[in-house]
């Protein structure tokens, strides 16, 4: 089923306004009343979608990141990721493909169809955002490389370059960061390789220059700054699962009925509303059931969490 957007560019706050918004909050000392501290006043109304689906500002999206390669704090990537060189960028595609090799990102981008996708983004830590990505469907790249018949999974790897990625100098995780999808998940039209945000190049802290976005899975599946894609016939190792298999499953589909041992997954707090960010019920498959449920027909989602 091809993807039909439930969030549109008309839902996106115009740039002038999201720039403004931060200024407003920054300048709030004394001058602005509690309403704008709450942040709830910003850009509601015209740009709001069913209240909860308001698109986050560029400032929210670029200053609140889990990207442990640049530190474990949410604001560390914004502070530290400027050291990353993203041009030139090569992606190695290997394993069960007809045309393995080192692909220059610029060449890849000539062959794919870049589009705008506004997706809900749900972190396993029970917070969420709505993000306007630019990118292409992963299936375009995989088809270009030529999928061999034995391929069942796709493995991804983030760049390993500790001299530019300060977090990789400590062993927070077993670097490089690794993620994986089942082949049908990778080929799903929802699965995006993002190259931009708000119509501009992806900021480093968001996984420049090329990252995965799998909107029905918890955010840690959406691996950033990808340098290697391998098609395999066995389920690949994935970083958080290697760290703590009980807490992070291979599938990690957004599912309000399956709790994480540390967090209830029943609801989430939408980031960006300031002090009064509203908590909302988490949607099954993050609201993308109609596009993805068929892939999991007959599977026990509790066992395959």
């Amino acid at each position: 089923m091809s993807f039909k957007p439930d969030l549109n560019w008309s839902d996106v706050t115009p740039k002038s306004q999201f720039m403004n918004r931060r200024q407003l909050i920054k300048g709030a000392a004394g001058a602005v009343a509690l309403g704008s501290i709450g942040g709830a006043a910003h850009a509601r109304g015209k740009y709001a979608v069913e209240g909860v689906d308001e698109v986050n500002s560029l400032s929210d999206i670029t200053n609140y990141n889990n990207f442990y390669e640049f530190g474990t704090g949410k604001e560390d990537p914004a502070r530290n990721a400027h050291t990353l060189t993203t041009d030139p960028w090569t992606v190695k595609i290997d394993g069960l493909v007809d045309r393995p090799g080192d692909y220059d990102l610029a060449d890849i981008l000539k062959r794919v169809n870049i589009e705008e996708r506004i997706y809900r983004f749900r972190c396993v830590e029970a917070w969420s955002m709505v993000i306007p990505w630019n990118g292409f469907e992963l299936n375009q790249l995989l088809n270009h490389a030529g999928i061999q018949s034995g391929a069942k999974y796709v493995a991804f790897e983030t760049l390993l370059r500790p001299e530019e990625m300060v977090g990789q100098r400590s062993r927070t995780l077993d670097w490089p960061y690794r993620e994986g999808l089942r082949l049908d998940e990778a080929m799903n039209p929802l699965t995006l390789m993002a190259t931009g945000l708000y119509g501009e190049d992806l900021p480093n802290q968001n996984g420049a220059p090329l990252r995965l976005v799998v909107p029905w899975k918890y955010g840690f599946k959406s691996i950033k700054s990808i340098v290697r894609i391998t098609l395999t016939d066995t389920q690949p190792d994935t970083s958080w699962n290697m760290t703590n298999a009980r807490e992070y499953g291979f599938y990690s589909n957004v599912n309000p009925e399956v709790d994480h041992p540390r967090w209830s997954q029943a609801s989430e707090r939408k980031i960006g509303g300031g002090l009064f960010s509203s908590r909302q019920d988490t949607l099954m498959m993050n609201g993308y059931s109609e596009y993805v449920d068929s892939m999991y027909a007959g599977m026990d989602l509790r066992a395959n969490f």
Partner: peptide, 10 residues
């Protein structure tokens, strides 16, 4: 009030 508590003040 100065907006110094970051993206998620809560």
């Amino acid at each position: 009030f100065a907006g110094q508590l970051g993206v998620d003040p809560v």
